[in-house]
Simulated assay, not measured.
Amino acid sequence: MQTREMALLMRDALLLPQGRVEVRVVDPGHLRMVADVFKGKYALAFATIRPRGSLPCYPTATQCDIIDFNQLEDDSLSLVLEGRQRVSILSAAQAKDKLWMARTLPCRNWQEEPIKGEFELISAALEQFYEVNPDLFELYSQVHLEDAAWVSQRWLEVLPMYNKDKLVLVNQPDCHKTLDFVLQLIKSHVD
């Protein structure tokens, strides 16, 4: 596998493959970075801010595409990002304009698999979550409620838990531990 340099966009949020998030870009450096990504100078990676550590973010990030953008009334830019490929951040350096660039290595994404049996409850609960949160639902042109990996990743993006705990689940080889975790969480609130 070959390493690749990517621009880092960091937030206190999680974005995983096939997920979507809307972010606001304000400062000129980040606006320039967006322009450079559109020009194909480098790829973009979305990473979760890390309060302490040798890197400014957690070492697991997601390469993403900018799939939509709008200029807002205050001249900031609203971007809709879609996760493509999980990556490991090997190193990161801050440029003069305060932007971060990272040397990354691709990681294996979770494989698509059918959601079955009692885990269908997780899919139904996610569908209800989107009904209550239409702003999140509107980001998607298609939802894949039949795919265990897709459903698991969407739950990890929205669950109110510490990012470091989410990343323990993200770094598993498949979605099974996340399915178990979310199912137990839902059952504990139903009982």
Rank of each mutant, 00 (worst) to 15 (best):
C175D: 05
Q111K: 13
D174H: 10
Q184F: 03
F129T: 09
V26M: 00
R86N: 14
S141E: 15
T60C: 09
E127R: 14
R50D: 03
E113A: 06
F137D: 11
V151I: 15
W110G: 07
V132I: 14
L126K: 12
K177A: 12
Q184Y: 08
K116S: 08
S152D: 05
H144R: 14
L81E: 02
L72A: 05
R20H: 05
A125T: 15
R154I: 14
L16I: 11
A7L: 11
R50H: 06
V34F: 06
L77R: 06
L139D: 09
R11G: 07
Y58C: 00
F181M: 08
A102F: 00
S141D: 14
S141K: 12
I186F: 06
L15Q: 00
P106E: 13
R84I: 11
E157R: 04
C107S: 14
A13H: 08
M101F: 14
A95K: 13
D75L: 05
L167D: 00
L105C: 12
Q71R: 07
D165Y: 03
Q2C: 07
L90P: 01
R86L: 15
D27H: 05
R86T: 11
D147V: 07
V158I: 15
Q18F: 12
L183I: 04
D68S: 13
R20V: 09
R11S: 00
K39F: 09
I49Q: 08
S88P: 04
E73W: 01
E73N: 11
G29P: 06
D135Y: 09
L15W: 04
